[in-house]
């Protein structure tokens, strides 16, 4: 239980609020933790569920991603509308 709350504080950000990079990095970290195989059962299951949510978040971000294009105007960034 203490182990679980510890891992929770480390990975507490809800996946829905994460960027692809954040979610993917944490997913990779979870894989390594779980592959080490030293965790109690309950924590392993919690890690797996977290990983599942992170992978889903990554997939969702990849599916919905749209290139953001901005333009430097002087020192400011403005949206760039490219003629297509």
């Amino acid at each position: 239980m203490t182990a679980k709350s510890k891992s929770k504080s480390k990975t507490g950000v809800p996946p829905a609020e994460m960027t692809f990079e954040q979610a993917f990095e944490e997913l990779e970290a979870l894989v390594e933790q779980l592959e080490a195989g030293q965790l109690p059962l309950e924590e392993s299951l919690a890690l797996f569920e977290r990983g599942q949510a992170l992978a889903a978040r990554c997939g969702q971000l990849l599916d919905s991603a749209e290139l953001k294009v901005k333009q430097l105007v002087g020192e400011k960034l403005e949206d760039f509308e490219a003629e297509t």
Partner: peptide, 16 residues
């Protein structure tokens, strides 16, 4: 990237 995410998840499932 999609393939990398899938692979990471597969490893997670396998580890579990």
């Amino acid at each position: 990237l999609r393939a990398q995410v899938d692979a990471a998840f597969d490893r997670l499932a396998l580890a579990l």
